[in-house]
């Protein structure tokens, strides 16, 4: 009996060691995925990976810093999503997106007031989703996201223009224009801070706000467009398959976040119009 116990001990210790190492390894893998998602400008996805990494290692300073860095951006993403869903009459989705924002920043006043307004104005239409929340908890908020899935979110430019950074960027754009550089034509469609028309035969590449270099790679028959982003001669980000109305977050060389939205795509002329706003 005693022998059998002592025989099991090494296996038990090995199992414990493997599970500890496994947890650490899973955390590192999640963190790496978070870094990749952050480079692609998908703050909400990066945050989810970082949170997953930190869940089992809360005292890891690297995960801690990543969570602090991405928290406000990820919450902003969900708030914008919530506003868009409400504007399109998808109140259940608006409610869920708002809850996701609050899960990240529980005292975000914008999210709290949005939630209260949603309850006040569309309370009766939220009965289903709230029943689901009561029954299955936070599982009601889950959505499946794959880094390969192109984002299906359009911009709410007026919301972005309200941000305090917008005026700073405006000033910088104006000074770039004065210098006669490749400045964005911010006065074109009023809803974007910067607006560009790109063509494979003409202006294929522009330097937009904050030094973001955008190069049109291709357009497709289904009105999707591919871009590459460069810092000096180095490609730093690939954006693939964006359709009109869809958008993607970008990190400028100066460290500011912007949202690139596709306004229109003309495959026959191989042209695309895009707009940028602070995210």
């Amino acid at each position: 009996m005693r022998n059998r116990r002592s025989n099991r001990l090494p296996y038990l210790l090995a199992t414990i060691a493997v599970s500890i190492l496994g947890a650490g390894c899973a955390g590192r893998t999640a963190y790496q995925h978070g870094i990749e998602a952050e480079k692609r400008g998908e703050a909400h996805l990066a945050y989810a990976y970082y949170a997953k990494a930190a869940q089992s290692s809360p005292d890891n300073g690297t995960y801690d810093r990543a969570i602090r860095r991405l928290g406000p951006l990820a919450a902003s993403h969900w708030i914008n999503d919530a506003k868009l869903a409400r504007a399109e009459g998808r109140y259940d989705e608006a409610w869920k997106a708002c809850m996701r924002a609050l899960a990240i920043q529980p005292d975000r006043s914008e999210a709290l007031s949005f939630y209260d307004e949603l309850e006040r104005d569309y309370g009766s239409r939220l009965a289903g989703v709230k029943r689901e929340w009561k029954k299955s908890g936070a599982k009601a908020l889950v959505i499946q996201v794959s880094p390969e899935t192109p984002p299906k979110r359009a911009e709410l430019p007026e919301a972005a223009m309200d941000s305090p950074e917008a005026s700073d960027v405006d000033a910088r754009v104006a000074s770039d224009t004065d210098r006669g550089g490749p400045a964005p034509t911010s006065e074109l469609p009023g809803k974007f801070l910067a607006h560009h028309a790109l063509s494979r035969d003409g202006t294929r590449e522009v330097t937009s706000v904050d030094g973001i270099r955008i190069r049109l790679r291709d357009t497709t028959e289904d009105r999707a467009v591919d871009f590459d982003l460069y810092e000096a001669d180095r490609r730093i980000q690939r954006i693939r398959g964006l359709k009109p109305g869809e958008s993607r977050l970008l990190l400028s060389p100066e460290g500011k976040w912007y949202r690139l939205t596709v306004v229109s795509v003309d495959h026959s002329a191989e042209t695309a119009e895009i707009g940028l706003n602070p995210a």
């Binding site: 989810a48 908890g137 599982k139 996201v145």
Partner: peptide
């Protein structure tokens, strides 16, 4: 009073299911 799920926080922090890499 809502039941056992009230105490659970497994998902609330991670409302995104990651379909790759985990």
């Amino acid at each position: 009073s809502w039941g056992a799920l009230a105490a659970s926080s497994d998902v609330v922090d991670n409302p995104i299911v990651l379909t790759t890499g985990d």
